[in-house]
């Protein structure tokens, strides 16, 4: 029912839909719908797009955390984390630095092993030794704060490497898909550029295209806009909003609260390795239950 963003790419007859990413009419209404009344700084970051921005999600659990604990040496970085993410759901994770939010999503594709508990992704347990980890990782796209593009490869080569090596696509097929994805993220003319020749925002969009080329079921974003110059943030967020609209399952670590209000089904606030609070965006911003959440939101929304 909910076609994933990339699935449409693989239908050969369909022309590339570049129009998806044409800048939408953004308006700043005088009365911001999500702005909680009397909340300091509320409304400053709001930008609202005409029409619905959120899809529903399915009642299929994609990711389960069961009592997950993790230590780095003596530091307890994840404490009793319980979490369920459903197919098509967009979850935003926020919290102060060192709260374990990056570690949380790095555990989902086992870039970090966990100490205790269990993580089940797409029906497969990460702690089960018979789980084919590389096959599972191929289903999970990941976008990093520092982009992590391969500097010795062009944008096109960056995108086609995994589809050719892991999915065993032919080079021509992989390049065809890569070019369509570059068009979708708005930089079709940069296919033969090296990462060092691209701006930060362009690099991050190539990185998103690289992750999408594997037709992932889940996309993980680890502070995707934190290393970007302010004027490049929106070009990356626009791509992510499109992706969310297409029904992709997404977990996004970010401090972009405007993005969270617009597309998230659920916002999770973490502190000291614990999930302190979670809820839908309206409720989360309007009536944060925990004192810790309130002081955090005060700090990041005031500027």
């Amino acid at each position: 029912m909910l076609g994933y963003f990339v699935n449409s790419l693989f239908q050969a007859q369909q022309p590339a839909e570049c129009s998806l990413l044409v800048a939408e009419q953004v308006r700043f209404p005088p009365d911001v719908p999500f702005a909680p009344k009397g909340f300091p700084g509320a409304g400053l970051l709001d930008f609202v797009v005409d029409g619905p921005t959120k899809q529903g999600y399915q009642d299929i659990v994609m990711i389960t955390f069961r009592q997950v604990n993790k230590w780095f040496g003596a530091t307890h970085v994840l404490r009793d984390v319980d979490l369920k993410v459903r197919a098509g759901e967009v979850v935003v994770v926020c919290g102060p630095s060192g709260s374990g939010k990056s570690t949380l999503i790095r555990c989902i594709n086992k870039l970090e092993p966990i100490g205790q508990g269990e993580i089940i992704v797409d029906g497969r347990s990460l702690s089960n030794p018979t789980t084919d980890l590389t096959a599972l990782r191929a289903e999970i796209g990941m976008v990093f704060q520092q982009f992590n593009l391969y500097p010795h490869m062009t944008a096109l080569q960056n995108i086609t490497l995994a589809p050719v090596k892991v999915r065993k696509l032919s080079r021509e097929e992989a390049e065809r898909i890569a070019r369509k994805l570059l068009a979708k993220v708005g930089i079709p003319e940069k296919a033969d550029h090296y990462p060092a020749q691209l701006s930060g925002g362009q690099q991050q969009r190539v990185a998103i295209a690289r992750a999408l080329a594997m037709q992932p079921k889940i996309m993980l974003f680890d502070e995707p806009t934190s290393a970007l110059d302010p004027e490049m943030i929106s070009e990356v967020l626009d791509v992510m909003v499109e992706l969310a609209k297409e029904g992709m399952t997404m977990i996004v670590v970010t401090h972009e609260m405007g993005f969270a209000k617009k597309v998230a089904h659920r916002i999770i606030f973490m502190d000291e390795g614990r999930i302190v609070e979670e809820g839908g965006p309206e409720e989360f911003f309007a009536n944060p239950k925990e004192e810790r959440t309130r002081s955090f939101l005060n700090k990041i929304l005031v500027h």
Partner: peptide, 13 residues
């Protein structure tokens, strides 16, 4: 950089 390992492994290589 360590990020290159992360990116490559995360893509299923």
């Amino acid at each position: 950089p360590r990020g290159q390992v992360d990116a490559a492994l995360a893509s299923g290589l």
